[in-house]
């Protein structure tokens, strides 16, 4: 495999058309690609472009030697999983929120909901099992954030795009979550993470990192 995840001249607009961003770079398997740049420089939008949630005006991403448009948008988005900074919970309890992707086109037909895995992840992220029965929109920011990581992980993506994953977490959970992801990315070949973080010491938790930077 020549290219795992390489983006070339990826071009997109920020909000109105006044600002155009163009960026190239590469994520190597087992690596964490850290996106740097001041607030408002287009980091979150870059992750959405990578997840094909925002249209790129130009450029391309090559994933496993194939152009991104060779994949269906559903296959792409479940494989290249974007986790927004502000966790989004839907009506229904915790379990229903975790189950949601298994009702949708992307993975409905080729993954099954694994209760065993759910318990394992709850344990890793120090969430009590009762959270599965709790109405999800009543969860605290930190709980919802961790539940949204679990929801993303159950999809079994190869690449996770994390937008300031520690923003809602206290110190103890911050370390837990970062350590987990640094293990996750090495646990199986062919995984990668793109990470936006404002905190230098977030990045210290990962062994193999590379950087790209968006200007102000």
């Amino acid at each position: 495999m020549q290219d795992f995840f390489r983006f070339t001249e990826l071009t997109y607009y920020l909000g109105s058309r006044e600002r155009e961003i163009r960026i190239s770079g590469e994520l190597k398997p087992g690596y964490v690609l850290v996106v740097k740049g001041p607030s408002g420089s287009g980091k979150s939008t870059l992750l959405k472009v990578m997840a094909r949630l925002v249209k790129a005006q130009g450029g391309e991403i090559i994933y496993r030697d194939k152009n991104w448009y060779a994949y269906s948008p559903y296959a792409w988005r479940t494989c290249i999983q974007y986790v927004p900074q502000k966790p989004v919970m839907f009506r229904g309890n915790g379990r229903e929120n975790l189950y949601k992707p298994f009702l949708l086109k992307g993975i409905r037909e080729d993954r099954i909901f694994n209760e065993e895995k759910v318990r394992e992840y709850l344990d890793i992220f120090s969430l009590p099992p009762q959270i599965l029965e709790q109405e999800a929109i009543t969860l605290s920011g930190g709980e919802a954030a961790r539940l949204s990581f679990i929801r993303a992980l159950l999809i079994e993506p190869s690449i996770i795009l994390l937008d300031e994953p520690t923003a809602y977490l206290d110190q103890e959970n911050r370390i837990k979550v970062l350590r987990f992801f640094s293990r996750w990315v090495k646990e199986e070949p062919g995984r990668g993470i793109v990470l936006i973080s404002h905190q230098e010491n977030d990045i210290e938790e990962f062994s193999d990192t590379s950087f790209i930077s968006l200007g102000g």
Binding site: L53, P84, L104, K105, G106, R108, I155
Partner: peptide, 16 residues
């Protein structure tokens, strides 16, 4: 919009 975008990220079709 956030909810719709999240559903798309989780593999939803536009209708879903």
């Amino acid at each position: 919009l956030d909810e719709v975008e999240q559903l798309l990220a989780l593999g939803a079709t536009p209708f879903e």
